[in-house]
Design a protein around this nucleic acid. Structure first.
Length: 565
RNA sequence: GCGCCCAUAGCUCAGCUGGAUAGAGUGUUUGGCUACGAACCAAAAGGUCACAGGUUCGAGUCCUGUUGGGCGCGCCA
């Protein structure tokens, strides 16, 4: 498994401090009873060293001593080990730590050993995680919310895979229920229209008015003729509905593939129903837990017994199950039947009420609610020329994912949607996204990579290639810009772990932008070509490894990493 | 009415889960290529972190209230 240089430094510091404390207690210099928990992290201000520890301030209260006094005692007798160069007491009692050149060298060596795997860890210990995302209604084209959720889910899944989880990407296909029936009715109406009968089946008031339905109906007639005209109504609607669904699903898969998203599983809602299906099993469980009752001709979930504010209908008076029941059965299937340890559902923020209510459903089927996590995305608004864009110019309907991809490159779209935290509302500025220059952050990052490739090419043309890490003297790297860059590269594995913990893929775009910025600063401060041999070797290696890190992160975000641009 | 989310520089956003003098990008002003890619870098300017309390060594970050914006409260999905 690749190393995590940042975590190694942090734990080395922590161990050294705790050891020094134990010895101080034995000598009677400090009282026992200090809490073990304290923070070792990178200080905000770079002038405060590579790492800073706050143990003195955390302990001061418990030990009834002045924080600076505590710090002095610990620092006076600490064993520096391999990684700590020096410790300084500062401010109210912070201890600032400078790391040794050995640590910097080991960091670069670790990256060189792991290469395309650098960043990976076994943090997840193979735990099974499922990320369900997009799950767009198959009654029409995907919208911008799906575009945002698509990238979030896709990148989050990659983050889980990089941090040692087993992760599947899933699309929940709502192929049954009112909305889909309405699609069947809309198809039926278009079908008769095309056959010249506009009166027998008037278009449903709340039907799907889009041209896509007309096209589906036309295609059906071209393929199968008009035989359905005389078929029983139910059969006709079902056939037309399924035909439209299949075509919509195929189109969604195409659009998603174009967007570089491939789901492992497309799970059909309809498969939950029927004899012995997940609905039956989950319902039996709920009955066992005394969670259901009948009233007013409907079957109810006694959600108030499980923490909700009001009860919910599971089976309507019509005999059909509600979406809620389907969703309970679906999650029963995920956890109990398929054995996922954790499930992440990525939904639009308009579903947050449902997300909150779902905790009681989890309890009712005997599952710990925290195993199910929701990411609720706020709305996306398109902005062009300072104005909010509501409709697509071409179709007059809401802007769809494929409309968006017609207009801007996939790299830019993915990077942009991944660059904001999911709980913020976001404005997508088309003017910037469409620009292929440095205003667009994705090019800033790609430029850094192309620039490094150019350096490597130029030197290779002169017969100079990067050497293996073991043959490079990294102690030659001493400039602040060099050390900053190495420190930043060291953080990738930890950054991935934090992204997995906080379910926040935007950390990766932030990280890679900072990687690019840190490199550009180094580039402007330090030359590679023409320096003394050992310095050149070290800097060239640093360039090569920076490019490697950029590639690894861009692979996670799944955007291209050009050698030239 | 009740519930969830949000509010940080003119604009778009960070702020490492409570740390030291609140940071980037963009826009404005200025400087840096006969030297590895100037799609870059450096500097200046720009702030009552919506408002008022509270918690503690320490609050943009946590708790309460207020204001303003988004969303939700169905035998819809």
């Amino acid at each position: 498994m690749p190393k995590n240089p940042y975590a190694l430094a942090v734990s080395a510091v922590r161990r050294a401090v705790l050891n020094a404390y134990e010895e101080a207690v034995v000598r009677g210099e400090l009282p026992a009873g200090a809490p073990e928990d304290f923070d070792v992290s990178e200080p905000r201000d770079k002038g405060h060293g590579d790492l800073a520890a706050n143990f003195a301030m955390v302990w001061a209260k418990a030990l009834k001593l002045n924080p600076r006094k505590v710090a002095e005692i610990i620092v006076a007798d600490i064993d520096n080990g391999d990684f700590i160069e020096k410790l300084e007491i500062a401010g109210p009692g912070f201890v600032n730590i400078t790391l040794t050149s050995a640590w910097y060298g080991q960091t670069l060596t670790a990256i060189d050993e792991a290469k395309a795997d650098y960043g990976k860890s076994d943090y997840g210990h193979g735990k099974r995680v499922q990320v369900e995302f997009v799950s767009a209604n198959p009654t029409g084209p995907m919208h911008l919310g799906n575009a945002r959720g698509g990238v979030l889910g896709d990148v989050l899944s990659s983050i889980f895979q990089w941090t040692g989880f087993y992760c599947e990407r899933e699309f929940y296909l709502n192929d049954t229920g009112n909305q889909v029936d309405l699609l069947g009715k809309s198809m039926e109406s278009r079908f008769f229209e095309l056959l010249g009968d506009e009166v027998s089946y008037p278009f449903p008031e709340d039907g799907y008015h889009g041209d896509d339905v007309k096209e589906h109906a036309k295609a059906y007639i071209e393929l199968h003729g008009d035989s359905l005209k005389d078929a029983p109504e139910a059969e006709r609607r079902t056939k037309l509905r399924d035909f439209a669904l299949e075509r919509n699903i195929a189109r969604m898969k195409e659009d998603l593939a174009r967007y570089r998203i491939v789901h492992d599983v497309w799970f059909k809602e309809s498969s939950l129903y029927g004899e012995g299906g997940a609905v039956d099993i989950a319902l039996a469980d709920m009955k066992k837990n005394d969670a259901v009752y009948e009233a007013d001709g409907a079957l109810w979930f006694a959600a108030t017994k499980f923490g909700s504010e009001k009860d919910e209908v599971l089976r309507k008076g019509t005999g059909f199950y509600t979406y809620y029941m389907g969703d309970i059965a679906y999650h029963y299937n995920k956890f109990v039947i398929r054995g996922f340890d954790t499930v992440i559902d990525i939904w639009g923020a308009d579903h947050h009420g449902h997300a909150i209510r779902f905790a009681s459903a989890m309890r009712a089927i005997g599952l710990e609610p925290t195993r199910l996590k929701f990411i609720l995305m706020q709305l996306v608004r398109l902005v062009r020329g300072g104005e909010i864009v509501r409709m697509s110019k071409r179709t007059g309907k809401a802007v769809s994912l494929s409309d968006l991809l017609d207009e801007i490159p996939v790299d830019a779209a993915r990077f942009f949607f991944c660059s904001r935290q999911n709980d913020t509302q976001m404005d997508f500025d088309l003017d910037i996204a469409v620009k292929e220059d440095s205003d667009n952050p994705v090019y800033y990052v790609q430029y850094a990579h192309a620039r490094i490739c150019s350096i490597l090419r130029n030197l290779l043309a002169e017969g100079i290639a990067p050497k293996p890490a073991a043959e490079v003297d990294f102690t030659k790297l001493t400039a602040p810009e060099e050390l900053e860059l190495i420190k930043h590269l060291a953080k990738l594995p930890q950054e991935l772990i934090m992204a997995a913990d906080s379910l926040d893929p935007s950390r990766m775009t932030k990280y890679v932008m900072e990687t690019a910025a840190t490199f550009h600063k180094f580039y402007n401060a330090c030359r590679v070509r023409g320096e003394e041999q050992s310095v050149m070797d070290a800097r060239l290696k640093l360039c090569e490894l920076t490019a490697q890190v950029l590639r690894n992160v861009l692979t996670i975000i799944n955007i291209t990493c050009p050698d030239r641009m």
